[in-house]
Amino acid sequence: MSENRLEVRKTYKLLMNGAFPRSESGRTYEVVDAEGTFIANVAQASRKDLRDAVVAARAAQAKWWSQSAYNRGQVIYRLAEMAESRHDEIAEAVEVCEGVKSKEARKSVSRGIDRMVWYAGWTDKITQVFGGANPVAGPFFNFSLPVPSGVVAAIAHPALSFEGIIDMVFGPVAAGNAVVLLASTERPIPAVLLGEMSAVSDFPGGVLNILTGQVEELAPVMASHEDIDGFDVGHAPEAERAALISASAGSIKRVFEGHGNDEATAMRRMRTFIETSTVWHTKGQ
């Protein structure tokens, strides 16, 4: 192959309902690497794109939750397999976007994939760990089931472009939610790659939706959108967080403000987007 072959560049689009549309607005924005070199023109999602993503997520969530927990675990594990096989590609994207050394990028991707596997194992444990039977003082069988909040929106970690989004995507998804992720504005490529992989790994379209664009433009729309049940604002810009939480109160959203990627924070996030549904049934002859 000739040394001076012209590279075939990739177009980075949105992930919505299992498909890869451009923004309905036709807008793109320029993404550069850590040194400022042009990487790509990335789709710049609009309010309407967000709206469409939420519609897709709402429809997909019911399907996702109706699958068996075993099945959901398999699907997430399948995605981890895909990610592993494209480890080099993701690591390269992380390296370019974050400007870290290759070795560090590879480690970060490995940690992300391992965390994905961790979540794959959660799907069929959540009910047992968070739910249970309650010994009420009366002739009733009473049990509590953890159920997903529904549609969760998340603002991606601005710096940790791959590893940093795993928790915010797969915590809610493992618990049965559908997610609309707004990728890091500056470093969206690894998130887009994750989206591409998810589309070929048995996820029902719409369970995972990834938008690229501007946080200032889309985050307030997420906060005020009534059909979003939960909102992860842990990595929203500090200055805007209070306003986002306040706007989230309009529809009494569950808001997650944590921002570590330790296990305790991961558990707290998962609990935030889980509801306890308690069923009473009479016991009699």
Binding site: S149, I252, E275, W280, T282
Partner: peptide, 27 residues
């Protein structure tokens, strides 16, 4: 979509039984 579901009964409460809502019924 409800935090509490009563089957063949209604308005029963117990300290061991979690109570609370989803959506705009709170968290």
């Amino acid at each position: 979509r409800a935090g509490v579901i009563w089957a063949n009964t209604y308005n029963k409460f117990d300290p061991t039984s979690p109570f609370g809502g989803v959506r705009e019924s709170g968290f």
